[in-house]
């Protein structure tokens, strides 16, 4: 991948050297690459040296205005070159004010010193603003949404109340039955218990109880 980029850039270095790269985007791309790639930078430096020799041979004055390329990147120290890569990844978050303080300071300092990264920052910020404006232009012209939502909400609340009442009624009835049946069973249990223990033997004959309540003796 890197080799592929180097090949592409190396092919453009003579044009770059002669100030023939008119496309801003392409110019920035080459500049960025030269900042980080020693080989390609060496190629350009070689070309500059060669150009000096040729000019000397033809007795042309040293470096005149015909050199349009920006030599800024040749003067960068390695740390700063490294920063370009690090900073570029952080520009988006910097725009959103979402960087940690220490990162924010690094980006801010670098943007003051690096024109290329500063241009990247400005373009990205502008992109963000344009997108925000675009979103603002979308219209939603459906009428009465609010009243329809509120109407649906009121219907939902009424239904909920109706369901609550129904559930409460069912539970109430179930509870009533449960209590009533439990009491009834308890009474029966009580009677059979008393009969079985024979404590009140004269009250009722056990056989009689069997007759009255078949299957309910315990």
């Amino acid at each position: 991948m890197e080799d592929h980029i180097c090949e592409e850039i190396k092919a453009l270095i003579p044009d770059f050297h002669d100030g023939e790269i008119k496309d801003k985007e392409l110019y920035d791309k080459i500049s960025r690459h030269l900042k980080v790639c020693k080989d390609c930078r060496a190629e350009l430096e070689q070309l500059i040296e060669l150009s000096k020799i040729v000019k000397k041979y033809f007795n042309v004055e040293e470096i005149d205005n015909s050199y349009k390329y920006n030599t800024e990147f040749l003067m960068y120290n390695p740390d700063e070159i490294q920063y370009c890569n690090n900073v570029r990844d952080k520009i988006s978050a910097y725009i959103d004010n979402e960087l940690l303080e220490q990162d924010r300071l690094i980006v801010e300092k670098h943007l003051k010193n690096c024109k290329i990264c500063y241009r990247d920052y400005e373009n990205l910020k502008l992109t963000s603003q344009i997108v925000q404006k675009y979103f603002d232009k979308i219209n939603f012209s459906e009428a009465n949404v609010s009243s329809r939502v509120i109407e649906r909400l009121n219907k939902y609340k009424t239904e909920r109340i109706a369901i609550s009442i129904a559930v409460a009624t069912v539970l109430g009835v179930a509870l009533f039955h449960f209590i009533f049946i439990s009491n009834f069973k308890f009474e029966l249990n009580d009677k059979s218990f008393k009969t079985k223990t024979g404590q009140q033997s004269n009250e009722q004959n056990p056989e009689e109880t069997e007759k009255i309540l078949p299957g309910l003796s315990f």
């Binding site: 520009i91 988006s92 373009n123 990205l124 992109t127």
Partner: peptide, 21 residues
């Protein structure tokens, strides 16, 4: 989120680059 947003913005920027000049 940070990296997705950065990449999304870069992609959008590519599309509208002529309008940024």
């Amino acid at each position: 989120v940070k990296s997705r947003l950065a990449r999304a913005r870069n992609k959008l920027q590519e599309h509208i680059r002529p309008y940024l000049q």
